[in-house]
């Protein structure tokens, strides 16, 4: 496993996340520790308001860590200038693009920005990469459409295609399955699984689809008020970490099926 050690894409050491204001700092979680290698699909689960988005924002450099270190490919996150970080890390956010007038092709092409010249001129390689991203996400047929004409499922595929076009070793997605029907939730997560396998990218996503995440993820981060545990899904189940995920008054975790049931 020595070779795998060299390919750690995302690493957190004694990380503390939260917010600082002038007077005080409010810590949301601390002592976060993990290493993710290339080709790994990582699911982040936790109840609403537990700090999943804060963790993802901290890992993607949109927010400063309160303490500890985050490094991408062994290099500290804070040492990346914005342009250099954009070649290592791409994000898929919950927000839709501000301009609904963008066409699908334009939206995906913008992912190439970190690789283009000062005017954003697309080279032959850029175009190939955009086409490849569209093929991977089944968005070729809708490429002429405008963003306001897309369904939620299509929009999510386009957003993922944009991140793929950015061609980074690490992709972070904030709740890519919200607002989607069951079919599309499974579709999106299976797509992420396939992409992690085929392209050897490290893909980290937060989700409320715990049973789907258990089935598909290589590793999972389980956030509760008391602890943050990182491990493979089967270990997490046997150690009973999912049981503490939610208050126990109306649902319970069935270890046999790996899913939550109504009491």
């Amino acid at each position: 496993m020595a070779s795998e050690k060299e390919h750690i894409v995302l690493e957190a050491k004694a990380l503390a996340i939260g917010y600082t204001s002038k007077k005080q700092r409010s810590v949301i979680a601390e002592g976060i520790q993990f290493q993710f290698s290339e080709g790994e699909l990582v699911g982040l689960v936790g109840a609403n308001g537990i700090g999943k988005s804060t963790l993802l924002r901290t890992l993607s450099g949109m927010q400063k860590a309160l303490d500890g270190d985050v490094s991408i490919l062994k290099r500290p996150l804070s040492s990346f200038p914005p342009a250099a970080l954009a070649t290592q890390l791409s994000v898929v956010l919950t927000e839709a693009p501000s301009s609904k007038n963008l066409s699908v092709t334009e939206f995906i092409s913008l992912g190439r920005q970190p690789h283009t010249n000062w005017l954003g001129r697309l080279s032959e390689k850029d175009r190939e990469m955009i086409l490849w991203a569209m093929e991977q996400t089944d968005t070729l047929e809708i490429r002429e459409r405008k963003c306001f004409e897309l369904s939620d499922g299509q929009m999510q595929r386009v957003a993922i295609a944009r991140a793929l076009a950015q061609d980074t070793p690490l992709i972070i997605l904030d709740e890519p399955t919200t607002h989607l029907d069951l079919y599309h939730r499974a579709y999106i997560l299976k797509l992420l699984k396939r992409l992690a396998n085929d392209t050897q990218k490290t893909i980290l996503f937060s989700t409320h689809e715990i049973d789907l995440a258990i089935q598909l993820s290589d590793k999972m981060i389980v956030m509760t008020t008391d602890s943050i545990v990182v491990d493979e899904p089967c270990n997490l189940i046997s150690q009973g970490h999912f049981t503490d995920l939610f208050p126990k008054d109306s649902i319970f975790f069935d270890e046999e099926t790996g899913s939550f049931r109504v009491k």
């Binding site: 993607s60 994000v91 693009p97 970190p114 283009t116 954003g120």
Partner: peptide, 23 residues
């Protein structure tokens, strides 16, 4: 005109623009 590249990134919204390396 020189700013067109950043302006294009801004069409995605502030957070996406940042993630594309826009200061």
């Amino acid at each position: 005109f020189i700013s067109s590249k950043s302006l294009n990134a801004l069409l995605l919204g502030e957070n996406y623009a940042r993630s594309l390396g826009v200061r």
